[in-house]
Design a binder for these strands. Structure first.
Lengths: 227, 227
DNA sequence: TGAATAGTGTCTTTCAGACAATATGCC
DNA sequence: GGCATATTGTCTGAAAGACACTATTCA
C-alpha cells in the first residue's frame, strides 16, 4: 500500500539544521473523562470556525516553544476545568500528514480522569462551547478525533484492570458500590457484587477510612480510599 | 513542584497562526531490538559530533513536513537495516524542553523487533557507526535515550505476555525451544519447559509446519510458525 | 553408549465466575 | 413493617505453577 512511496535517505554528514528545516506544528490534545451516573463522559468543544465549523472536537492547543508536552496539557486542563495537579497520562502521538486540513499538525494525546463533581464548566477559565458528552452518544467529530477517543478508551479499559486508574474518577473517599459502578461503566458490563468486593479488597489497593456514607433510606456504606 | 510556573492562557479567538508560531523540531527515534543467543540487543549509533560526541545513541531523524511519523520511522529502519515491511509500534512521544541541548526537539519513539540474522549492519544503506549492543550492558547514552530504552522495554515486556509480539524476533519457522528462549530473554527469567509448551500450544497462536529442525548431535525439533 | 536437546503428564494451588441470603438504616 | 441498599461465603472450573522422566539423533 505504501509501495509506490519514494524513500528518502538521511545523510548524517549533512546534519540538517533544526532551525531552517520546515517543521510540522505540534499540539497536545486532552481527553477529559468522568463517570456521571451510569455514563462515561468526555469534555468536547463545539467548533465556532472552520475547518469543521459546528463539529465537536477534543480540547487541545499548539504547544509553546519553551513548554513541555505535559505542561502544555496541564495548561489546556486548567483552561477547561480550572484544575491543576491532576494525573495526566500520555496516550500516543497522532501524526498522519492529512489529519488537519490547515496544514501539517502532529498532536500528542493525553487523558485525565476526574470526579464528575470536581468540574464546573461554567466557572472554568476558558471553557466556552465546552460540554460533557457521553461516549456512548458521540457525535461526528472534527479531524481524527473519533480515532483518538477510540484508541484512548481502549488504553484506559486495559489499564484500569491492573492499575489504580479508577482513583482519578472518584472523590478521595468513596463506597465500594461507587467504585464498582466506575468499573462497570468503563468495562461496559455488570459485575457480580461479591466477586468484585472479594477481588478489590484482596488487591490491597484500598483501605477503609472507618467512616460511613449515609444517603437515602437504607443501610449506610463504609467509605474507603486508595492507599 | 511546578507551582512557580507561569500558566499561560489560550485565547481561542486569537486563533494562533500555525505558520508563524515558533515551532519545536520533531523527530522519530527507532529502537531496533533482537534476541541474539541469550541476550536482548538493540542497535545503537556512536555519535561522531557534538552534542554527546563519542556517546552511544538510538537511531532517529527529523521528520519531513510531508511525511507521517510512521513513514519517517520506516525510513530510519531502512537506512539502518535495509529492511522494509516490518511491524513498527509507537511507544510514545518524549517532549521535555531540555532533552536536546541544540534546541527544542520533541521525539516520537517506535520499536521494531527483528530476527537477529535478518540484519547485516555492514550491508545496510546507512548504518555507519551502528552496532548491536546487549541491553544488559548499556553504556551511558546521549540525550534522554536511557529513559527511552527503559520505557520501551517495559512496554514490550508487558505486551509480549498477551500478544504475538515474539513473532517479529524469530524467523518464519522456529522451534519451541527457540520461542521459549525469546520469552526467557525478554522476561529475564527461566520458564519451565512443560508449562511453557502447554500454554503456548493451548493459545492457538502457533501451528506446526510438519518440518523438522536438525542441528547438532541430538534429537531434532519440530518447526512451528505463527498462524 | 554417551552426550545433548526434544518431548511429555500429574498434582497442587490460585483465581475467576456463578450463585442467594442476611444486615442495617430510614420512612 | 416495608423499602432500599450494604454486606457476606461456598462451590466449581480454568489456568498457572511445581516437578522428572523418556525419546531421538549423532558422534
Amino acid at each position: 500500500m505504501n509501495d509506490t512511496k519514494v524513500i528518502r535517505y538521511t545523510d548524517e554528514a549533512k546534519n540538517r539544521d533544526i532551525t531552517t528545516l520546515e517543521k510540522p506544528a505540534l499540539s497536545v490534545t486532552l481527553l477529559i473523562f468522568s463517570v456521571n451516573k451510569n455514563n462515561l463522559e468526555v469534555i468536547l468543544i463545539k467548533r465556532v470556525r472552520d475547518p469543521f465549523k459546528g463539529f465537536w472536537s477534543i480540547p487541545g492547543d499548539l504547544i509553546y516553544i519553551d513548554e513541555s508536552l505535559k505542561d502544555a496539557t496541564r495548561r489546556v486542563l486548567y483552561e477547561k476545568t480550572g484544575l491543576k495537579d491532576v494525573y495526566l497520562e500520555q496516550v500516543k502521538a497522532f501524526g498522519e500528514v492529512t489529519r488537519d486540513p490547515r496544514g501539517r499538525v502532529v498532536t500528542v494525546a493525553y487523558f485525565a480522569l476526574l470526579p464528575y463533581t470536581s468540574v464546573d464548566l461554567s466557572a472554568a477559565p476558558n471553557a466556552l462551547h465546552a460540554s460533557w458528552v457521553p461516549v456512548k452518544k458521540l457525535p461526528q467529530l472534527a479531524f481524527d478525533h473519533t480515532k483518538i477517543i477510540s484508541q484512548t478508551l481502549d488504553k484506559i479499559k486495559k489499564e484500569i484492570e491492573y492499575t489504580s486508574l479508577a482513583k482519578g474518577l472518584l472523590p478521595k473517599e468513596f463506597t465500594l458500590s461507587q467504585l464498582q459502578n466506575v468499573y462497570e461503566v468503563i468495562g461496559q458490563k455488570k459485575i457480580d457484587k461479591r466477586n468484585f468486593r472479594k477481588k478489590i479488597l484482596a488487591s490491597q489497593l484500598l483501605k477503609p477510612t472507618g467512616k460511613m456514607y449515609r444517603e437515602g433510606n437504607h443501610r449506610p456504606a463504609k467509605l474507603y480510599r486508595f492507599v
